[in-house]
């Protein structure tokens, strides 16, 4: 469905070039929900924004491919990309109110969206479409919402409106960048359930960016763990969360408060992305780091559906056998 190949994005700042995304590759297969997790500064959000052309100067996508339905999104002209976005790819951002225009009614904003893709669409059909989409999100009183303005909505309702817009043309892929971070937990649950319900059946996929491991654990099929602009580990959610192989993934999971377990924080800070370290970016904070880690960037090790970039990954049953045979 969506294949990222060695995507790199930099930001030119006064201090130098910040390597925010550094050769990121992963797939979002048809019919799957893929979560990208990591802490602030790991490049998860910049990665998806690169894919959908939201990087503006001083940022620049410097390389890689993002193949979607046979076309490279990164090589597309803006005009072509706009035709794909909104129609084949839906996007939901973090701040619902920042994404809505405060001076246009919701119906007007729906109309603008529809006209961008179907310039000849008539008012009644737009209205009919908007009502249907809003009803699907389970919003109370869709007619009233349509006539109203953003400030009359609660955060949860605004996010429902944006989801309805993102789903207006039944996109094959929904990209959601921290869609529930600004919302309360009870509302977050409703919104995530809604997204899953809308995507259920057929081959629709989702790429979900979040810092919340619980969201990934409960709503995604596969997970991509990022650190300092790189993918450190990826694979099926259950495998990765049950038996993390990369020490950073393990550290993330150890930091989650759980009853009967002592949580552990992580010392140190992210490496400077201007002066990108030569070896493994996690080496300075890693309990398993050896000399080689600081000097040589680890290769990607692939075992079945799982991948890990580490010189000293935790062993998995399969790996142990391969190592023994070699």
């Amino acid at each position: 469905m969506l294949e990222l190949r060695e995507v790199s994005t930099v930001f030119n700042t006064r201090r130098g070039t910040v390597h925010a995304v550094n050769g990121v590759s992963f797939d979002v297969p048809a019919g799957r929900m893929v979560g990208v997790v990591g802490e602030s500064g790991c490049g998860k959000s910049v990665t998806v924004r690169s894919v959908i052309g939201l990087i503006r100067p001083p940022g620049r996508v410097t390389g890689g491919q993002a193949l979607f339905e046979g076309h490279d999104l990164l090589a597309m002209r803006r005009r072509e990309l706009r035709r794909v976005l909104g129609a084949r790819i839906g996007f939901v951002g973090q701040q619902p109110f920042a994404s809505l225009n405060p001076v246009l009614s919701i119906e007007e904003q729906f109309a603008n969206l529809v006209w961008a893709h179907r310039p000849r669409a008539k008012r009644p059909e737009i209205r009919e479409l908007a009502l249907r989409k809003l009803q699907e999100t389970g919003i109370a009183g869709p007619e009233r919402v349509l006539r109203g303005y953003a400030h009359q909505l609660s955060g949860g309702m605004a996010q429902r409106v944006l989801i309805a817009m993102a789903m207006a043309f039944d996109p094959a892929l929904l990209i959601a960048d921290e869609p529930t971070t600004a919302l309360d937990v009870t509302v977050q649950r409703q919104i995530l359930d809604l997204i899953r319900r809308l995507l259920a059946g057929g081959d629709r996929s989702m790429l979900l960016v979040t810092h919340d491991l619980g969201v990934v654990a409960q709503y995604c099929d596969a997970v991509v763990v990022m650190y300092a602009g790189k993918v450190v580990e990826k694979g099926p959610v259950r495998d990765v969360f049950r038996r993390p192989r990369h020490p950073y993934t393990a550290a993330l999971l150890r930091a989650v408060p759980r009853p009967g377990q002592r949580i552990k924080g992580l010392g140190g800070t992210l490496p400077d992305l201007v002066d990108y370290p030569g070896g493994c970016p996690y080496a300075a904070r890693c309990e398993r780091a050896s000399e080689v880690c600081g000097a040589v960037a680890p290769e990607v090790e692939r075992v079945r559906e799982r991948e890990v970039s580490c010189h000293h990954p935790a062993l998995e049953e399969g790996t142990a056998r391969v190592a023994a045979q070699a």
Partner: peptide
């Protein structure tokens, strides 16, 4: 009860029932 059931566990296999409340605050 509703608040607790809306909390998402990081254990993919731990899926207690969800008791949703209607609407927003």
């Amino acid at each position: 009860q509703a608040l607790l059931s809306a909390t998402l566990s990081v254990d993919p296999d731990e899926r207690p029932p969800h008791y949703p409340l209607r609407g927003d605050i």
